[in-house]
């Protein structure tokens, strides 16, 4: 039997796993080896978080599945992450803007979940808050330097904000997943987090001499229902092909 907040835990785990996969791509591609390590570390934090959440999920959804079952043996439609985290890696500026948004959201939502009625979820959440505060600070430091840096870095940050704009509304949408968990007293409604998250983000952007996140004519939706963009399939193919080519392999 499945608990009402199982889909929320799946959503949180998938957000973390998919973004960890994207951040891992930066290793050997960041401006300096030090930044390879920084983004790689953040990715590993998120991967560890996903593993903890998948561990909970196996008992919450009643299937008894393990972390590898969720990561490697589900298909695209079964993943519940938001579109922002699956978008292809672009330039360093875009990654910093995306990290600023995701980490700011994570700080607020895991702070709220730290007092969840599900004590195991609350335990994962309180560890996640500390990690995400560091991630957010890393993104903040870089946003200030790139936004208020050279004209080239400023322009790239402006175009990064334009690129992420369509994916921001989805972060704060109360879908059936979050509503069910909130009704059960275990979750938090994303809409209630929006003002705190965006206040932090807009303050950092203003300090970095950047305008806020621009409005967008279209917006992403459907990630929480398993509807994803083209990028998701390629990401999953790369992430899953080894485990699927050699089922049960260990190394």
């Amino acid at each position: 039997m499945s608990e009402a907040h199982a889909p929320l835990v799946a959503a949180l785990a998938d957000d973390a796993l998919i973004y960890a996969q994207r951040l891992g791509e930066w290793i050997s591609r960041a401006p300096q080896i030090e930044e390879d390590m920084a983004l790689g570390n953040i990715g590993l934090d998120l991967l560890g978080r996903a593993r903890s959440l998948y561990g909970l999920l196996g008992s919450l959804d009643g299937t008894g599945r393990g972390e590898d079952d969720y990561a490697y043996w589900r298909d695209e439609r079964e993943f519940r992450h938001v579109h922002l985290v699956e978008q292809p890696r672009h330039d360093f500026g875009l990654e910093i803007v995306r990290l600023l948004l995701v980490a700011s959201l994570d700080v607020e939502r895991y702070a709220a979940l730290a007092s969840s009625a599900d004590v195991e979820l609350a335990g994962v959440a309180s560890k996640a808050v500390t990690e995400s505060r560091y991630h957010r600070d890393h993104a903040r430091l870089w946003t200030l330097r790139l936004g208020d840096g050279t004209s080239e870095s400023h322009d790239r940050m402006v175009s990064a904000l334009e690129r992420v704009a369509p994916y921001v509304d989805e972060l704060f949408e109360d879908t059936a997943v979050e509503v069910a968990a909130a009704d059960a007293g275990v979750g938090v409604l994303p809409s209630t987090l929006k003002s705190a998250v965006m206040r932090f983000v807009e303050d950092v952007l203003a300090e970095a001499t950047l305008d806020g996140v621009p409005s967008s004519r279209w917006r992403s939706r459907g990630g929480r229902e398993g509807l994803h963009s083209e990028a998701c399939g390629y990401l999953l193919a790369e992430m899953q092909h080894l485990a699927r080519s050699h089922p049960g392999a260990t190394w």
Partner: peptide, 17 residues
């Protein structure tokens, strides 16, 4: 040792490395 554009990021990089 490490490379960083300024002191605050040097501290971040040091933490990570």
């Amino acid at each position: 040792s490490l490379h960083a554009p300024d002191a605050a990021l040097a501290l971040h990089n040091a933490r990570d490395l």
